[in-house]
Design a protein around this nucleic acid. Sequence first.
DNA 1: ATTGAACTCGTACGGCGTACGATTAAATTG
DNA 2: CAATTTAATCGTACGCCGTACGAGTTCAAT
Lengths: 232, 232
Amino acid sequence: MAAKRSGAESKGSGRRGASPQSGQEPRSEPPLSLERIVATAVELLDAEGVDGLKMRRLADRLGSGAMSLYWHVGNKEEVFDLALDSVLEYRGPPEIVESRDWRGDIVHLLEDWRASMLRHPWSASLLPRRALGPNILIRLELLSKTLSGAGVTDADLNVAIWSLWNYVIGATITRANFDLSDDDRAAAQQRLTGLSQHYPTIERSRLLLDNDWDGAFRKGLDFLLDGLAPRQ
Amino acid sequence: MAAKRSGAESKGSGRRGASPQSGQEPRSEPPLSLERIVATAVELLDAEGVDGLKMRRLADRLGSGAMSLYWHVGNKEEVFDLALDSVLEYRGPPEIVESRDWRGDIVHLLEDWRASMLRHPWSASLLPRRALGPNILIRLELLSKTLSGAGVTDADLNVAIWSLWNYVIGATITRANFDLSDDDRAAAQQRLTGLSQHYPTIERSRLLLDNDWDGAFRKGLDFLLDGLAPRQ
DNA sequence: ATTGAACTCGTACGGCGTACGATTAAATTG
DNA sequence: CAATTTAATCGTACGCCGTACGAGTTCAAT
């Protein structure tokens, strides 16, 4: 029964490297490892999108056979889970000082979260349908604590967190996908203009042409925070 | 629509049993049509989820061969587009009266939108990555007009619309996916409780156990609307 | 009776995830 | 040292998938 190595990662198992002497190997790829697989999967996802991640292609990039991956990984879904989690890792602020400016802290946390996902546009769509990994839980915990410390009552806390979650997820998924299809944007606007008598208001406000995603995210977030914790 | 024509010459060797619909055949499927294909695709999606929609299975349900679908439809993606659009159709309020209560109107519009998508849990995830169809544009136009009439300035209009869009999309995608995996929820909570020293705040607020999705949606929406158009 | 457009569908192809077992390299044991 | 056990790799094969291709069928208009 080959017990596949699971989650626990042991560092420092560094045998194997002791044989570069045998010069016949034209190319000695480093050995397969979970870390290498996940890192390469992220690269491949970044380059080719969700549909571009195939086990064979991943193996190609790793210089291995396709089936070798299954020693380290249960199945393809697990590759997605691991890649997603690795991308959401939070390198928090180096100094955890008690900030006076809780709003600024929250805005920073959420903008960083969004930026992390936009750096890997496949990640946002994946996040809501997979179980919550540790890295995203860390972010939620920090968010929770900050809100709580800012005076949001326990009764409102969950609503506040989910509202911010919804906002960030919705904004990032939308942005990531619109980003990928500029032509579609243009086509949609074309269609819209042609039918301006049907949609006069959104045509007037040029809703689909507004390119200031970052600014809109920030402004909308400010509105939401105003509602969640009005400054008295 | 799409006229597909490929040169078909008759060679004339007509043998192949089982042809006529004359009396003896009990099966009398109605002929294929776009509407029937789309309606059946929605049924299949509702029953089996996004991954359950296969061209062969769809054809089975329609009592046709798989390739027959391609006369009416360009490819599988188009089936998704059509199914999505059909599900988002807006049966607006029968009377378009000028309501005094613009907030109530907006809440109703958004709750109806969310409900429509939750009735077909595959739809929310699909919406952001496909081009905007007419039905969703109608909803956006109505939303736009109502907000504008409520006093939201043109400068804030796009931000307001996208904020509400983000909120609804994020909330519905999250709800739809969490809904599908109750076991995962329990498992996540289990894991969370086990690690409560790492996530004390979200553990205390029982974030993942809060089941009042509808209430949370409504409350968060109220907060957001408070921020967007504060009642003075 | 003939035609041609509208429609249906059987077959085939390449690509996918992955089960299975053979194979090899490394570590451990005697 | 040899023998054996374990960790890791990978070739082959299977069953599905979307769909290209082109032949077959129906039917209204001639």
